[in-house]
Simulated scan of single mutants.
Amino acid sequence: MNVSSAASRPATDRVVAITGAGTGIGRATAHAFAAEGATVLVIGRRGRPGGSVYAATKMAMELFTRTWAVELAPRGIRVVAVAPGAIGTPIGKHQGLTPEQLAALREWQLAHTPMRRRGTPEEVARSITYLASPDASFITGAVLPVDGGAVVA
């Protein structure tokens, strides 16, 4: 299915389900294409042990980013992604991790991040703000890692 065509919601949902990209972001992004000239931001993240299904959905979103960039460029729509690494948020608590599991996760994150710290939500937000701005008007199909160097480690 080419998302630049007038795809129905059931067809979009089917593609999202088949690709494993049912993160909610994919569906919301696909339906946002009705806005001509819009910049679409797809959020992705590096995987970690025990998170293979989650990582697979994020890789699907990265490939959507690249494909949609090509398909939608003629309509003036840029598609870019931000791929945060270890970001200091309470998501582990929301997932029900124990204090010991949270400590182990943080240790793993720091060991796999060359800058040896977690990023902040504000750092991710500034990256998104830049990519959505006119300053980034010639950027499309790119995935910006905001991960303290984890992608190259």
Rank of each mutant, 00 (worst) to 15 (best):
G47K: 02
V42F: 07
G148K: 01
L97N: 07
N2Q: 15
M61R: 09
A150N: 08
P134W: 09
E100R: 09
R117K: 10
R78I: 13
M1T: 14
L131M: 05
Y130N: 06
A136I: 05
P121I: 02
A6V: 11
A103K: 07
P114R: 00
A30M: 13
S133Q: 06
S133P: 06
K58M: 09
P74E: 11
A56T: 06
V15M: 13
S8D: 06
S4Y: 07
K93R: 14
V40T: 13
L105M: 14
R48K: 10
A136R: 04
S4F: 09
F33I: 15
V42C: 10
L63T: 10
A35Y: 07
A81V: 08
M59I: 14
A28V: 06
M1S: 14
G51A: 11
L72Q: 13
P121A: 08
A55V: 01
G24E: 09
A153E: 07
S8T: 12
G22H: 09
T29W: 09
A17R: 12
E100L: 12
A17M: 12
R46Q: 10
I43R: 11
G119E: 06
R118G: 01
K93E: 15
Q109P: 03
M59D: 14
S52K: 10
A55Q: 05
A30L: 12
T113S: 03
G47Y: 04
R78H: 10
P99C: 09
S4H: 05
A136F: 04
A150G: 08
D135R: 12
T12D: 11
V15N: 00
Y130V: 00
I91Q: 04
A11I: 03
Q95N: 15
Q95T: 08
P99F: 07
A125P: 03
G148Y: 04
M61F: 10
R126D: 06
T12I: 15
I91Y: 05
T113L: 01
R27M: 15
F64E: 08
I128R: 02
E62Y: 05
I25Y: 06
V15R: 04
L102Y: 03
G24T: 10
E107W: 01
P145W: 06
I128M: 04
L41E: 01
L131T: 02
A83Q: 08
V82E: 02
P74Y: 12
Q95C: 09
P134Y: 01
A132N: 00
A136P: 00
S127M: 05
T98N: 11
V53K: 09
W108K: 09
T12E: 10
G119L: 03
H112I: 06
T23L: 09
A7R: 11
R45N: 11
R14V: 12
T98C: 15
